[in-house]
């Protein structure tokens, strides 16, 4: 994974997120589910993070093959800081 960038897939709702996540895991694409970053300004509260940006095309194909609608692919630099100590 490129340590400087995090790659996201945005979907319309949590059911779609869960469905695509299961598909991706099934074919061994490294990914997880995460809260949608506020900067993305996307309506669904959760999204998928995938580790390798070269998987983007494959993710698109798999979503189409399973009739899962993707809203957008997105990326931003890794802003997570374990030493920030700002909580919510």
């Amino acid at each position: 994974m490129d340590q400087q960038t995090i790659y996201y897939v945005f979907l319309p709702d949590t059911s779609a997120v869960m469905a695509l996540y299961e598909v991706l895991r099934g074919v061994g694409i490294a990914c997880t589910i995460a809260p949608t970053p506020r900067e993305a300004d996307h309506c669904c509260g959760v999204c998928i993070i995938y580790e390798n940006h070269t998987d983007k095309g494959k993710i698109h194909e798999l979503a189409e093959a399973h009739n899962i609608s993707i809203d957008a692919f997105w990326s931003q630099s890794d802003r997570n800081d374990p030493q920030r100590y700002k909580f919510c």
């Binding site: 995460a34 809260p35 949608t36 970053p37 800081d81 374990p82 920030r84 700002k86 919510c88």
Partner: peptide, 8 residues
């Protein structure tokens, strides 16, 4: 929430 969750 997203940033706090990301950090932790």
């Amino acid at each position: 929430l997203p940033q706090a969750f990301g950090d932790v």
